[in-house]
Simulated assay, not measured.
Amino acid sequence: MKKDYSKSHHHTYRCENTKQCCIYTIPLFQSLTAEQKEQIHPLIQHKHYSKGEIIYRPGESADSLYVLSSGKIRVYRLSESGKEQLIRIVSEGEFTGELALFKKGFYEAFTEALTDCNICAIKHADFRQLLMQYPATAVDMLATIAERLGSSEQQTAWATTETVKDRLLHFLISLVDSEEREPIVELKMAKKDLASYLGTTSESLSRELAHLEKEKIIEEIAYGKIKLLNVN
């Protein structure tokens, strides 16, 4: 079934309950004082998107940073042949649309609501002023962008040099929390999205998961929750 990439029908709303407003809850703004948050709050536009809606698409003027206050969204590209490549899943408290923050440009990817979402949008011009005024927020944001860049470079390396099995195994290892006693990881995306992220098909991913489990390298202890048993 062909996706409908027509203009999104999101609506704006007022954030009456401060506990639901992203400025008060997301990590990016937590270095600010309560007074500073109050000053920034009027700059934010609150938007609601329904599951399946496109938030922005390639070629649209990039003028805002989008902060997810609830729900989950996916960022992906389409090749000329129509093949989808997942870039990342954006979860509650995270942001997207930052690449054009310091230059006028256009969005280069699709962003789609995976669930019903509430999003806080702030114009790039306003956000640049904010970063100059509050350096701690700028440092926090740069740390996130640097982490994303590293993940993107790793994703490219996997796709061009490794088998699907190795891509999957290295991805699972990258999720392991070194402080946990047992190497158990939880997939925070559907398997079809993981397949897209790893540059393969859902069928190939399922096949490799089965092979790894048969070889007693991993054990799927619950849906989307995997224990690494024998990883060198």
Rank of each mutant, 00 (worst) to 15 (best):
K3E: 09
Y5C: 06
Y5D: 03
K7V: 11
S8G: 02
Y13N: 10
R14G: 10
E16S: 04
C21V: 01
I23A: 05
T25H: 01
S31V: 03
L32E: 00
I44M: 00
Q45K: 11
K47E: 09
K47T: 07
G59C: 04
E60T: 04
E60I: 05
E60V: 05
A62L: 08
L65N: 03
Y66L: 07
L68D: 03
G71D: 03
Y76M: 00
K83E: 12
E84L: 11
I87L: 14
I89N: 05
E94Y: 08
F95Y: 00
F95R: 05
E98V: 06
A100D: 01
L101M: 09
L101V: 02
K103R: 11
K103W: 12
G105Y: 07
T111W: 00
A113M: 00
L114Q: 04
T115H: 07
L131I: 01
Y134H: 15
P135Y: 12
A136L: 10
A138D: 13
M141L: 10
L149C: 14
G150N: 15
S152Y: 15
Q155W: 09
Q155F: 11
T156R: 15
A159G: 13
T163N: 00
V164C: 09
R167L: 11
R167K: 15
S174L: 12
E180F: 13
E180Q: 15
E180R: 15
R181F: 15
L187P: 04
M189F: 08
M189S: 02
L198Q: 09
L198W: 08
L205H: 04
E208N: 10
H211W: 11
K216D: 11
I217N: 06
E219M: 11
Y223A: 11
I226R: 06
V231L: 07
